[in-house]
Deep mutational scan, measured.
Amino acid sequence: DLSALRVEEVQNVINAMQKILECPICLELIKEPVSTKCDHIFCKFCMLKLLNQKKGPSQCPLCKNDITKRSLQESTRFSQLVEELLKIICAFQLDTGLEYANSYNFAKKENNSPEHLKDEVSIIQSMGYRNRAKRLLQSEPENPSLQETSLSVQLSNLGTVRTLRTKQRIQPQRTSVYIELGSDSSEDTVNKATYCSVGDQELLQITPQGTRDEISLDSAKKAACEFSETDVTNTEHHQPSNNDLNTTEKRAAERHPEKYQGSSVSNLHVEPCGTNTHASSLQHENSSLLLTKDRMNVEKAEF
């Protein structure tokens, strides 16, 4: 173990290094160091905050020279020094078990990766560091076993998940096959086929009936047209017969005018059967003409 005197000496050296690497504005270890034209180094955030307070150039807090945003430059070497100082402080805390008085939040800088452990060898070769390295080497064999167990647990979990997924996939297939086998029997399929065939026959029977009705309507229309044509021909046949009657009536009127007047009046009210309204109107006109002729003949006879 380190003596108290040596611990104090190391602590004083760390404090001196820390004062050199402090920012003059925030009085902390410089984060993202930036250098000016006057070779003074500050935190990048502190300098941008200072420049944004005034429009135009501002003055350096140490030498009062003008500073602009374009004049600022990043210093990589200074950032490396800060990183190495942080590593020294971490090693000091691990070796002594004491917390550094002016320690900052170094938890963000710590890294437990194997590459980081290899890099620590180049920091300080001390008894405390050696003991700590031995402890780490002793704890390393235990870690692979834990990793193997965790991997086995994960693989077993994956296997159970896969088996569950396969079961879920197989179950719908089985149910679907069961439904297909038990849903419709052979008799049901035959009945469905016969039902479809009967429906098709009914459709075939319905369509000819409609065509037959249309044919019957067409035949009825044709018969009505033929009947009207026969009526017209009958009226045409009746007209010459009426003319013959008129000639006979004229002759009778010349011989017996008194008797014919009474008979002509009675004939006005008689309509021949089986004739249309057109034929009756023609008869009325003929009878009126005959009456006028008879009157003329009677007057001539009187004179």
Rank of each mutant, 00 (worst) to 15 (best):
37 K>V: 02
129 Y>V: 10
271 E>K: 07
272 P>W: 00
52 N>D: 09
20 I>R: 04
250 K>T: 03
57 P>E: 05
209 Q>P: 07
38 C>E: 12
86 L>G: 14
205 Q>E: 00
24 P>A: 02
140 E>G: 09
140 E>D: 08
243 N>K: 14
32 E>Q: 11
82 V>R: 09
207 T>S: 06
261 Q>P: 08
256 H>S: 09
159 G>D: 08
86 L>Q: 15
64 K>P: 15
264 S>V: 05
282 L>T: 10
198 V>H: 01
42 F>Y: 07
201 Q>K: 05
9 E>C: 07
50 L>N: 10
19 K>H: 06
125 Q>V: 09
154 Q>M: 01
207 T>C: 14
36 T>S: 07
240 P>V: 14
8 E>Y: 02
223 A>F: 00
294 D>G: 14
139 S>Y: 03
267 N>R: 02
62 L>H: 05
274 G>S: 08
127 M>T: 04
214 E>F: 00
224 A>R: 12
232 V>E: 06
85 L>V: 13
248 T>W: 14
114 P>T: 06
8 E>M: 12
20 I>W: 10
272 P>S: 08
263 S>W: 00
133 A>R: 04
261 Q>F: 06
52 N>A: 11
4 A>S: 09
216 S>I: 06
40 H>K: 13
6 R>E: 08
220 A>T: 09
208 P>L: 00
257 P>S: 02
202 E>S: 10
20 I>G: 03
68 T>M: 09
91 A>Y: 11
255 R>T: 13
92 F>L: 12
141 P>A: 13
213 D>A: 02
155 L>Q: 13
208 P>R: 04
56 G>T: 10
162 R>Y: 09
30 I>F: 09
230 T>V: 04
131 N>R: 10
22 E>R: 10
69 K>G: 13
200 D>P: 01
4 A>F: 04
85 L>H: 05
64 K>Y: 03
8 E>H: 10
215 I>W: 12
273 C>W: 00
164 L>F: 10
65 N>Y: 11
278 H>R: 14
37 K>N: 01
64 K>G: 06
274 G>C: 04
91 A>H: 12
127 M>I: 06
158 L>I: 07
250 K>C: 12
150 S>Y: 04
270 V>Y: 13
295 R>E: 01
160 T>S: 05
101 A>S: 14
125 Q>M: 06
68 T>V: 02
131 N>T: 07
246 N>I: 09
54 K>R: 01
85 L>F: 12
266 S>W: 00
137 L>Q: 06
8 E>D: 13
43 C>H: 13
156 S>G: 10
156 S>W: 01
230 T>P: 04
161 V>A: 12
254 E>G: 06
204 L>I: 11
219 S>H: 05
33 P>E: 12
35 S>G: 10
246 N>A: 08
220 A>S: 10
295 R>T: 02
